[in-house]
Design a protein around this nucleic acid. Structure first.
Lengths: 358, 358
DNA sequence: GCTGCCTTTGAGACCGGTCTCAACGGTGTG
DNA sequence: CACACCGTTGAGACCGGTCTCAAAGGCAGC
């Protein structure tokens, strides 16, 4: 019942086994030269006293903490939930632990989280950065000689490995399918923050979003069409923003006949918003969502999605980080190709505006 | 490009500011007595050198690491994703960090995780235990004088705070609604591990599942019915197990007309399984699911659910843990009452077997 | 018997903070 | 002027591991 409860230390074990602290440490840590005799005496003593090493002290002197920092925007988002699962499975297998930090997609919180994690001496960091142009805090990580792997998004001017799916082909495919059904006004909604309205591809930097839009453009170009920049909408970060974007899109003289949702949160809000407006999928409007989750097959209609191997990507991110830590040569990053899964949310264009059916 | 890169320490700052290490530490840590003069000189030196404290070293000497261990079955499960979000938000507000451990609902992994987290000297632990009768490792935590809060499930013989929703009323309500529609063979599927088939309420210990079944029993009793123990099915841990349970349930002479899914994973698998069997909700069978997520309103029909305030529960769990750490008196645990949200997945009993329609 | 080498051992430095303690200088008091 | 008392300061112990280093002991070879 007393508060402090001193846990037993190597010194205690050493005393019990009647050897020096150094020998006890060697026997327990399994390094250096220890005679059979001493080893077994120390083991017995340790077991009798219920010795457990203080990992903090160990990290102090070795300089390695066997823990990885994971910084994501929102662990509540199943995308990151799944990625985190992949990361923590890989970490556990390699004897590492995961310290999780949520940034709420806030750059300031992200900077802070990265800094505190560094202070806690994590061996390496996996970051899903919320801004692609904000690299000072990440550059610091590299300068401090700590391992870093980016997840999902890349950051300008940062020479570091990025684990991210390749979207261009799948985006092109999806767009082709839409075009085949008569769509050519296809809107794309992303939670990416952009200060000014989207105008050209370079506005998106080298983010995966750029790949997605590039894929759309290519498919449209093949059909002799061009992508209307006004249909690429950033800042779709919450219900209200999405409602506003819908307002703007549907009040255009030629509203879009198909929507692509850049993640599951946007898709969920979009589905609600479309329902509210009485628009039925795929009769009145078509929808494609990025990412795939169990529920997407169970809604009506089942959603056509662009799936990415999120768990495997998380697993790979952690494994690469750990291999970096061990100084092992890293193989080339495997291709995580996104994949179009066709279900029921793409339909033919009928009457987008009244009196236009063929 | 050189590897080790010694980050600067209090000693470096002290040298730069031409004061003793002790004074520098006091000025930086904001404790003890320091003159204005020295304080500002140290601050300047620290800024110039880019000093950042080594949290590991700090934890070593203070004995507090300002980190909380969180042990859950599966972070990929949105239930735990949301809870973790609540926990980590509360933790961050209080200046704590979260070390996450996934147990995969495996008791051995859980024991290990708890032990390692203790070795890492977390200040406190939040555990969603996977077994209710397996308390040795958790008792150790208490014996070691560390703070512990359980989440979702309680553990027999462990005197410790548990944050969990209260289900009895909502379960009773849901059952009443089912009864009102003519159901009285209502099956309950849970992922809880049980060695032998369920027979009586005491088999469930004091787990929340017991509350849920008790609620069902009470509602049935009010209608002059009894709960058939054969309809309470444990071990619904994955797709195959659930398919098997369905096989057994539907091959009974009087198969159930309604199902209650103990969590969203079970519900998801159940929906697929019912679809596969050509059973339509709510025409052929009714369904109630525990927990509520955005997609539940978007499937057809929208699911009637028993919602629990998971985020708030996570938040409260972390806050209570932290208050425990600070030695503050803890107020009584708020009532997290689960709530029945009626949507479209309960329908009247029609023809459970052919030729029985009214 | 002496040298050289290898294994085993213990003493103690070290990591980078916190914190105790004694000492120091200045002020107020009797 | 002696004394107590205060704020300020520096030296150094401490946390609990790891790891260096020198010494001790055993054994083979000459």
């Amino acid at each position: 019942m007393s508060e402090p409860i001193r846990r037993c230390t190597v010194a205690d074990v050493a005393r019990e086994a009647k050897v020096s602290k150094a020998q006890a440490a060697r026997a327990l840590g399994g390094y250096g030269a220890v005679s059979e005799e001493v080893a077994s005496r120390v083991q017995t003593a340790a077991r009798r006293l219920g010795y457990r090493p203080n990992e903090l002290a160990r990290s102090m002197s070795t300089g390695r903490s066997r823990s990885l920092g994971v910084v994501v925007g929102d662990i509540e988002n199943p995308h990151f939930g799944l990625a985190t699962r992949g990361i923590s499975d890989a970490a556990r297998q390699a004897g590492y632990h995961v310290i999780l930090a949520n940034t709420d997609e806030n750059p300031e919180t992200e900077r802070n989280a990265v800094r505190v994690l560094m202070d806690k001496r994590v061996d390496g960091l996996i970051v899903a950065p919320c801004r692609s142009n904000d690299n000072a805090h990440l550059q610091e990580v590299i300068n401090a000689g700590r391992a870093l792997v980016l997840f999902d998004r890349m950051v300008a001017g940062l020479e570091v490995e990025v684990i991210s799916a390749r979207f261009e082909r799948a985006a092109e495919r999806a767009t082709q399918r839409l075009i085949a059904q008569g769509h050519h006004r296809i809107a794309y909604l992303t939670s990416l923050r952009l200060e000014r309205p989207y105008e050209r591809l370079t506005d998106l930097g080298s983010s995966p979003v750029a790949q997605r839009v590039a894929g759309m453009q290519r498919a449209l170009a093949q059909a002799g069409q061009v992508l209307d920049p006004g249909l690429v909408r950033a800042n779709a970060t919450n219900r209200e923003a999405i409602a506003r974007i819908c307002d703007e899109l549907f009040s255009r003289p030629s509203p879009p006949t198909a929507l692509m949702a850049s993640d599951n949160l946007i898709a969920l809000d979009l589905l609600r918003e479309l329902k509210r407006r009485g628009l039925e999928i795929p009769r009145d409007i078509s929808l494609v969502m990025y990412d795939d989750f169990p529920w997407t097959e169970l809604v009506t209609p089942a959603l056509t999605v662009i799936a990415q191997p999120v768990y495997a990507m998380g697993h790979e991110a952690a494994n690469r980080l750990i291999r970096q830590l061990h100084g092992e040569a890293s193989e080339p990053i495997p291709n995580f190709d996104a994949e179009l899964i066709e279900r029921g949310s793409i339909g033919p264009v009928t009457c987008a505006t009244p009196r236009q059916g063929r």
